[in-house]
Design a protein around this nucleic acid. Structure first.
Length: 164
DNA sequence: GCCAACGTTGGC
DNA sequence: GCCAACGTTGGC
């Protein structure tokens, strides 16, 4: 059992989109980075935990929980000349790009990138490393547990005080 | 829109 | 194999 953080632009596929899909499952299409591909192909297993992250939006951060729902298989968009993700060097006989299915489990509160960055316990989180822009990164078990605790906690002390 | 950082490409 | 040029990511 491993843990992952997977970025998606909400305008492409948001946590709401994923939850609204059949079986809350979406094909994680469009990965065009070898390192990210290799994570999916070589290290992911069905049932692995996924932190669903929104990037390229007003408040980037973790917005939900998901799980890996399939092993890796060829991303069909690489063969489609009409697709934004078309890769002219890929053929069905020699595919380059793989993807997995991701099943959304639930929304969480938004846990902003800024809050992750401010937490000394998460200093080793791959997404926080300088210049890191990988869309799929492994998450250490200790970091996973820590983040789950943060997600179940109100964002600020002020929120706690304002509770009736 | 800007820009830092990184990945990929292709000439040599 | 080197490296300059270019493209992309993604926060701000």
């Amino acid at each position: 059992m491993r843990y992952w953080l997977m970025k998606s632009e909400p305008e492409e596929v948001s946590i709401d989109d994923a939850l609204a899909a059949p079986d809350s499952t979406v094909a994680w299409t469009g990965v065009r980075n070898y390192q990210a591909r290799n994570f999916m192909r070589d290290a992911m297993h069905v049932g692995d935990g996924v932190l669903f992250y929104h990037s390229g939006c007003a408040v980037p951060g973790i917005v939900g929980l998901a799980e890996v729902a399939s092993t890796a298989y060829p991303d069909p968009t690489q063969f489609d000349p009409a697709s934004h993700y078309h890769d002219p060097k890929a053929t069905p006989e020699t595919p380059r790009w793989q993807m997995v299915d991701i099943r959304a489990l639930r929304k969480t509160r938004v846990l902003p990138l800024a809050e992750l960055r401010a937490d000394p316990e998460l200093a080793g989180l791959m997404i926080l490393q300088r210049g890191s822009r990988l869309s799929i990164t492994p998450v250490e078990a200790a970091d996973w547990r820590h983040i789950l605790r943060l997600l179940d906690r109100p964002a600020t002390a002020a929120d706690t005080r304002s509770k009736p």
